[in-house]
Write a protein that binds this DNA or RNA. Sequence first.
RNA 1: GGCCCGUUCGUCUAGGGGUCUAGGACAUCUCCCUUUCACGGAGGAAACACGGGUUCGAUUCCCGUACGGGCUACCA
Length: 512
Amino acid sequence: MNTGRRVRTRFAPSPTGPLHMGGVRTALFNYLFAKKHGGDFLLRIEDTDQTRYVPGAEEYIIEALNWCGIHIDEGVSAGGPHAPYRQSERKAEGIYLKYAMQLVHDGHAYYAFDTPEELEAMRQRLTAAKVVAPQYNAIVRQSMKNSLTLSEDEVAKRIASGDPYVIRLNVPRNEEIRFEDIIRGWVSVNSAQVDDKVLLKSDGMPTYHLAHIIDDVLMEISHAVRGEEWLPSAPAHILIYRYLGWEEQMPRYAHLPLLLRPDGNGKLSKRDGDRLGFPVFPLNWTDPNTGEQSSGYREKGYYPEAFVNMLALLGWNPGTNQELFSMDELIQAFSFERVSKSGAKFDPEKTRWFNQQYLRKHSLHELALEFDKVLKSKNINRSQQFVERFCELIREKAHFVNEFWELGSYFFEIPGTYDSKVIEKKWNLTSSAAMNKLHAVFNQADSWDMSGINQMIAVVETGGDKVDKQLLRVLITGVSSGASLVEMMELLGKEDVVTRIEKALKALPEIK
RNA sequence: GGCCCGUUCGUCUAGGGGUCUAGGACAUCUCCCUUUCACGGAGGAAACACGGGUUCGAUUCCCGUACGGGCUACCA
C-alpha cells in the first residue's frame, strides 16, 4: 500500500463558511507532515454541495492559511499539474461521472430512483418496525426502486425519460472491512453497518465519498489526514477504492482527534462563534447572508505564530517539555505517532499565554513598529528610541500589543485626573511638602538619568521629607500602578516630569 | 437506539509491566523580588473512571461496566 512514494497531503475544505480553528489544525497537521517528509501540501476545494456554497468562503480559507504560515504548494490559488482543484470544475470535466459509470458497469454501484418522500417513508417504516439501523442497505434496497429491483427496460426507460436518479454504492451484505489508520491502528467494521452511500447525486454532482477518492488518487495523495468525524464512513471509502481497483494507490488514512468545546459538550463548531467568549475563527468573518459577524484571532491581536503553536499542541506533543515551537521546529518534530487519540478541549487562557510568550520573543524594533500604528492613529509622534524603550518597559505587563496603549498611555499624555484613592489616603501636608521640594530639586537638575533621579530623591529624604513613591507615581502618571517608577521618569525626561509634577501640584485639592 | 472511537491533575499532556512517593505546561494558591502592576524565582494544592482478570507485580496488557465523543443526509 503506497510505501515509499512521494508524500503528498491535502487539505480539502468545503467553502460553506469561514474555516474554524479545528479546520486550521487539520490543515496544519497535513502541512507539517508533508513538509517533514519533503513532500507537497495541496489545497482542494470541495464545493460539490451547491446549496451550501457561501461566497467569500474560499478566499477566507486561503487568506487564513496564508496568515498562519501554511503554504500551499499546489491547488486552488497555487495551480499545479492536476488542475482544476475545485471539484465543481472537475465535475464539469466529467471526471467523476466516468468512474461512477465504471462502478455501475462492474456491478459495484447502481441507479436508484427513490424520491425523497419514498426514502423518508422507508425510514419511518423501519423505525416503526424497530429496525436497529434504519438505512438504505443490502436488505432494504430489495424493496426500493433501483436498477437492482427494476427490470433493465424499466431502468433504461426511466433514465431516457429524465427521471431523477442517484448512483449508490452496492455494499455487500456481510463482509468484514478492515483498514489500518495511522493514528488508531486497525479498525474493523462489518459491511452490514455501512449503508449504500450515494456516490452521484441527482444533480450530477458527486458526493464527498466518491469525489475525494477519485481526486486523492488522481492527485497522487499519499496520506489522507482528516477529522475523526470521517472514521465511520472510512469503511465505505475502503470499499470504493477496492471496487475501483485502486488499492495500490489508496492513501494511508489518519483520523485526527476532534477539537472539543472548552465549556463542556460536543465538538467545536462554527456555530460557536464568539458565544463562548473567544474566537473560533482565525480571521474576522461577516456572513454574507445574515450579516452576522464573528471575530478572529488575527483581529483580536494574536500572533499567527502563537495561534499555530497553540493549535499544534492540541492533540500532538513532542514528547519533551518544549512548548514553544517555530513552524520549522514543528515540522522537524512532528509525527503521527505522537498524535493522541482522544479529543481535546482547548484552553483560551493558554492561548493568551502563548501570545504573551511570542510578545516577549519579538524584538523591541518589531514591537515599536506595531505600536507605532496605534500612535499614528492618535497623531502622536515620538522618536523610535522613545517608543522602543516604552515597549521594553510595558511589554512585560501585556499579552498583546493592543494592550500597550491602555497600559501605558500616560507615557504619551499628561494626566488630567489623579487616582482618587491614593490622593485621599496620601495627599497631606507632609507629603505635599515633600513633593514640592522634590519638584524644586528636579527642576534644578543638570543631568537626568536613573541614578541621578534616585540621588535627588535621597537628597530630599535626607532633608527629612519622606517621598512616597506611589504618590509620586500618581502625580506623574495619574494612575497608581505601571512601569517601574524611576525607569519611567528617566524615559519621560526632566522637562516632562517637572511639568507633570507642577501641574499635579496645582490641580490637587487644597490640603485639609 | 445502533455502530465506531476514546477515557492520567480544572485544561493540554508525559508515561507503552517494576525507576510512579505518577513528570511538565496553563489556570489557581502561598512566599520572595518589586514601597505599584506585571515579569521573574521558590513552593503548595490538584489526576491514573470503576469492576474483573493476566502477572511475582499493573497507570501501563485483556474483558466488562460507566462516562465522553463521533457517525447514523442526494452535507461535507
